[in-house]
Amino acid sequence: MEAIKKEETLSPKLIVSVGPHVKDEETIQRIMWSVSLALLPSSVMAAYYFGPRALAVMIVSILSALGAEAVTQKVMGKPIAISDGSAFLTGLLLSLNLPSGIPLYLPIIGNVVAIVITKQLFGGLGFNVFNPALIGRALLLTSWPRLMTTWYKPVASLTSLDAITTATPLGVIKEAGAVKGMEELLKQFGSISNMYTEMLIGNRAGSLGETSIIALLIGAAFLLYKRYITWHIPFSFLATVAVLSWVVGVKDPVTGNISFFTGDPLLSLLSGGLILGAFFMATDYVTVPVLRRAQIAFGIGCGLLTILIRRFGGYPEGVCYAILLMNCFTPLLDRWFKRRKFGFVKERK
């Protein structure tokens, strides 16, 4: 009571209110739609290379995500907030993680699990422990491994409906071993420089959104410029993968000897879903650490796990599981890297 009186005497214009005091134009809505916009180049490239089928997968995926969100929020008695764009983004991201030729009930099931179980049952936007789109993908990959790993050759024609299945570059390497796999890739792409070019542009087998590196980097640059994401996670993630893939090197398939420091970092960076994962999945605000130093540790952990799975695990690609596993560590990392209070001395045991 006394304090209020005092303030009144200080100045009649003094307004006392609780935080936050600095207001900004940025809203959840704006950020979510911006990230979706940043994925537009990738979506266009996906539709260009994989044809109308890819478009169908994307549309079904987005619609089912929005539907699942609306129905769950209705049932749970919450305000329906599908216009905030988070469900749209989840649907789009999940579809970019899928091969083009899958039956269309797969994205529906994936999105229902992603939205209902991973997001809404944990409390809705902001409370989910794991990245919903990645959980959707992991569930689909575990449930229908064959459908989810049947990749199609890009056709680069909007009218062609014929599709030829083929292996992804990482799949080729997993299957044939590093040395032989590289030879096969060279045969497929012609020359090594051609291979890198094709990978950058996106003319190769893979999931819808992961193939065109250039399109992904345009989107990422937009997000970095707008400061919706920071460099900490993507760059520590990519750097760890590059360094480790060089260090771990090539394994001789005959003798089993690993020749260290001979790996091809560029191939590791360009192949698989690494760029998509590093810039668009491992930067999801909800499921990654808040502190910068913790974010770097998060990125390093993701890179380490990716290389472990790619080189020593059963799957050719490990980005999805690496990010999901690091999602578990998010609270721990935030706690670990918390700045010590000034003048606070740790008690000696």
């Binding site: 009930y105 099931i109 179980i117 049952l121 569930l139 575990t142 449930s143 229908w144 491994p145």
Partner: peptide
């Protein structure tokens, strides 16, 4: 039927128990 392989794996067991418990 299009069986979901995950449901016969232990992961699916945890999923189902959690949902049924809820």
């Amino acid at each position: 039927a299009r069986p979901m392989l995950i449901m016969v794996l232990p992961t699916g067991g945890f999923f189902v128990i959690g949902l049924l418990m809820g």
